[in-house]
Each structure stands twice: as C-alpha cells, then as structure tokens.
Computed example of a mutant assay.
Amino acid sequence: MELVSVAALTDDRVIGKDGELPWPSIPADKKQYRARIADAPVILGRRTFESMLDDLPGRRQIVLSRSTQSFEVDSAVHAAGVDEAVDIAAADGADAAYVIGGAVIYELFQPHLDRMFLSRVPGEYEGDSYYPEFDESDWTLVSETEDEGFTLEEWVRTA
C-alpha cells in the first residue's frame, strides 16, 4: 500500500491559520483533492477531523489522537500512532492511504511517504501551520500542472 500526502501550501509552506486555510477558496483545487481521496482511507489528526465533520473526506477516516479514542461517525476509527494508522489502512484493502493533515500529522508521516501531491498556492499568507520541509534530493518531481489559482505538483520518493 502506498502512503500519499495531499496538501495545499504556499511557497513558504504555510498550510493554515487558526484552523482554516489563509487564502480564499480555490474550487478547482478542492475538486481535484476530493476526487483523489474519495474512495480511499484518509489519515488525519483530531483537530483536522473535527474541522471537517460537516463534509468528511475519504471512505474511512483514520484519526490520530492522544486524547479522543472514539468518534460519533461510523466511518472514523482511532489510531494511536503511525504504525497503527498504516495497519488500519492496509487492512481496509486500499491501494493507497492519503495523509491529509494537519501539520503534526504531515511531520509524523513525512519519513514514510511514497508520494506527495502538493497544490502550490501563489502569494504570501500569514499562517501558524506549515507543511514540513523535505529534502528534494530524496524525491523526483514527476509532474507539474498549472490550474486556476494553483499549481499541482506530484512528487515520488526516490531515496
């Protein structure tokens, strides 16, 4: 099973501010993001999960949390750490599991990722959450697609 990170970020790696995106909504990015993860398990932190309760992504939400261990959503399951989250996703029979944030979750999974889909949002925005730095020499940029309001990059781990 492949572990794939999906994130929207600025050139200085900002992904959020006060639990929200700091830039105006980009419908084309939201559409490609939702289509990519629709039929797969997603791995996310508790705060990100709670921020998406009205419109949960993926077919199963694997929620990493130290405090909350059960959820009132049938498709959500708890995981205590990276290994448990990966085991749950693998048991789901999926070809890929998508890591969708927040910042701490991206950081925890960075060493384990096989692929990243990064939507690069132009402009400068203040933020308090950042996508982790990664060594580009360990990755190959296999595609870069300009779209309305963002550029989608696909990175594959090579090292």
Rank of each mutant, 00 (worst) to 15 (best):
A7F: 00
L56Q: 00
A28D: 15
A90Y: 06
Y125C: 08
G93V: 10
E148L: 12
R46K: 12
F117P: 00
L3S: 05
S75R: 06
V42R: 00
D54H: 06
I37H: 00
S65K: 03
V99L: 02
E154S: 05
K30N: 09
V6Q: 00
Y125R: 07
R47E: 15
V14C: 05
D128R: 11
F109M: 14
E50T: 10
E2V: 11
A90G: 05
A159D: 14
T145D: 12
E72P: 03
I43E: 00
V82H: 04
L152I: 07
W139V: 10
A159E: 15
P57C: 02
L108P: 01
M116Y: 02
D128M: 11
P57Q: 03
L3P: 01
G45S: 12
K31Q: 11
D135K: 08
T48S: 07
Y125S: 08
P27V: 09
Q32W: 12
S67F: 07
Q69R: 15
R115T: 07
A79C: 13
D39P: 00
A97E: 12
A80E: 15
F49K: 03
R36D: 01
S67K: 10
G149A: 09
P22V: 13
A40V: 05
P27C: 08
G123E: 13
E20Y: 10
G45W: 07
V142C: 05
M52V: 01
D55Y: 01
A35T: 07
E153Y: 13
E72D: 14
E50V: 11
S5K: 06
G127V: 13
I15E: 07
E144P: 01
H78K: 11
T140Y: 09
W155F: 04
F49S: 07
I100W: 04
D29S: 04
D11N: 15
L53Q: 13
G127N: 14
Q32C: 07
D54Q: 09
A85I: 11
L113H: 05
